[in-house]
């Protein structure tokens, strides 16, 4: 992890140029319109929560922004470059170097130890084994699961497995983390530990995070919330800022 100072770009902070932007994305699966003109911007270092009812298109939007799914229409721009339309191998390479992904079920490789799971992205990037294992251990330490380094995923609790998955997503020091319901399978205490570790690590490293969740308590870890409804972003209510200020003043 680098040592750039942590920052909290609040919802009212100055908007900087986005590191990642989705513009008017549409995506259909057969007759199902998963996205209909969804636009969202992620600023460098920002933690953004994407919320909405189940089926509203959250995962599809995350997949499009991470370059995993190609939208039918619209543009995904990463650091000023179009991501959609890039050949698959170029997107895979970018995902490996600049992005980290965590899903609801960590999707760790069951045959590998926690340490090897976390070291894998580094090995794929050409880091030598010894260095990769050292960095994996340091990352496991940050997430409080250094003691489980030699365990296989089947031997871990849900919360531990998810922290290992987070460590794997962050070990390459990506610029953007995509997390899709990362605590959906955890109880609230495990969820709190996983999210606290994620937020602290991301802030220290200046990593931007797009976290998809239907849970407001998870969304409250983010700097900002955007809501999806029927495949499009819910426009921000005009009165929201004023109301938020009134509520904040009471405390």
């Amino acid at each position: 992890m680098n040592n750039s100072p942590s920052r909290t770009p609040g919802p009212t902070g100055p908007r900087r140029a986005p590191i990642l932007a989705a513009h008017a994305l549409s995506k259909s699966y057969g007759a199902t319109e998963a996205l209909r003109g969804a636009s969202v911007e992620l600023t460098a270092g920002e933690i953004l929560a994407l919320t909405g009812a189940s089926g509203s298109g959250k995962s599809t939007l995350l997949h499009c922004m991470a370059g995993i799914v190609e939208p039918d229409a619209g543009a995904v721009t990463y650091e000023g470059r179009r991501l959609d339309g890039l050949p698959e191998h170029a997107r895979t390479l970018l995902r490996r170097t600049d992005f980290g992904v965590v899903f609801q079920f960590g999707q760790l490789i069951p045959e590998l130890t926690a340490r090897d799971n976390v070291a894998l992205p580094l090995l794929l990037a050409g880091v030598r084994r010894q260095a990769a294992e050292q960095r994996a251990d340091a990352c496991l330490e940050r997430f409080g699961v250094r003691g489980q380094a030699a365990s296989r995923p089947g031997e871990l609790s849900g919360g531990q497995a998810q922290r290992v998955a987070m460590a794997r997503a962050l070990v390459t020091e990506p610029k953007v983390i995509f997390a899709d319901e990362p605590t959906g399978a955890l109880d609230s205490l495990a969820s709190e530990q996983v999210l606290t570790a994620l937020v602290h690590t991301a802030r220290e490293a200046g990593t931007a995070v797009l976290v998809v969740t239907h849970d407001a308590q998870v969304a409250a870890y983010a700097d900002r919330e955007v809501q999806l409804r029927d495949g499009a972003l819910v426009p921000e209510p005009a009165a929201a800022t004023a109301t938020a200020r009134v509520a904040g003043d009471e405390h």
Binding site: Q217, A219, A220, A222, E225, T243, A244, V246, G248, H251
Partner: peptide, 8 residues
């Protein structure tokens, strides 16, 4: 939005 701000 106000609830979310307080929750943050």
């Amino acid at each position: 939005a106000a609830h979310m701000a307080r929750m943050r």
